[in-house]
Amino acid sequence: MSTKLGYQPDGYQRRAVRGRLTIERRLRLDRAQWERHRTVQVEVEGLAPCLPLMGLGSG
């Protein structure tokens, strides 16, 4: 299902969860793929105050 939405394989990650080894399959969705597969208009509000927390923009 994820690949139908444009997600691409991005490797594996091994982690210990409650003392047991788990292997996670990572997926990635870049902007171009997201735009190609989106079906609704998206608008982001209130982002400006958050940008410094992500190392983007000035505080």
Score class of each variant (00 low, 15 high):
S2D: 04
T3N: 06
T3F: 02
T3I: 03
T3M: 09
K4T: 08
K4M: 10
L5P: 00
L5Y: 01
L5W: 02
L5N: 01
G6S: 05
G6E: 01
G6C: 02
Y7T: 00
Y7P: 00
Y7H: 03
Y7D: 00
Y7N: 00
Q8M: 11
P9H: 05
P9F: 03
P9Q: 03
D10S: 14
D10G: 01
G11L: 06
G11W: 05
G11T: 10
Q13T: 12
Q13D: 04
R14A: 08
R15L: 13
A16W: 12
A16V: 09
A16K: 15
A16E: 13
A16P: 00
A16Y: 13
A16R: 12
V17N: 05
V17R: 15
R18W: 08
R18A: 13
R20I: 03
T22E: 13
T22A: 10
T22G: 01
T22C: 06
T22H: 15
I23D: 02
E24Y: 08
R25N: 11
R26H: 15
L27Y: 01
L27G: 00
R28N: 09
L29M: 07
D30V: 03
R31W: 08
R31K: 12
R31D: 03
R31S: 05
A32C: 04
Q33L: 04
W34Q: 04
W34K: 02
E35G: 01
E35D: 14
E35A: 07
R36Q: 15
R36C: 01
R36P: 00
H37M: 03
H37K: 12
H37V: 07
H37F: 08
R38N: 07
R38I: 02
T39N: 05
T39A: 09
V40W: 06
V40L: 13
Q41P: 03
Q41E: 14
Q41S: 12
Q41R: 14
V42K: 06
V42R: 13
V42M: 09
V42A: 09
E43M: 11
E43N: 10
E43S: 11
V44I: 15
E45G: 04
E45D: 11
G46Q: 08
G46V: 07
G46T: 08
G46P: 01
G46I: 06
L47M: 14
L47W: 13
L47D: 08
L47H: 05
A48Q: 14
P49I: 05
C50S: 12
C50F: 15
C50M: 14
L51P: 01
P52M: 07
L53H: 12
L53S: 10
L53Q: 12
M54Q: 11
M54S: 06
G55T: 04
G55M: 06
G55P: 01
L56C: 06
L56W: 06
L56P: 00
G57L: 09
G57T: 10
S58L: 11
S58Q: 14
S58I: 09
S58Y: 07
S58H: 13
G59T: 06
G59F: 07
G59A: 15
G59E: 13
G59K: 11
G59V: 09
G59M: 05
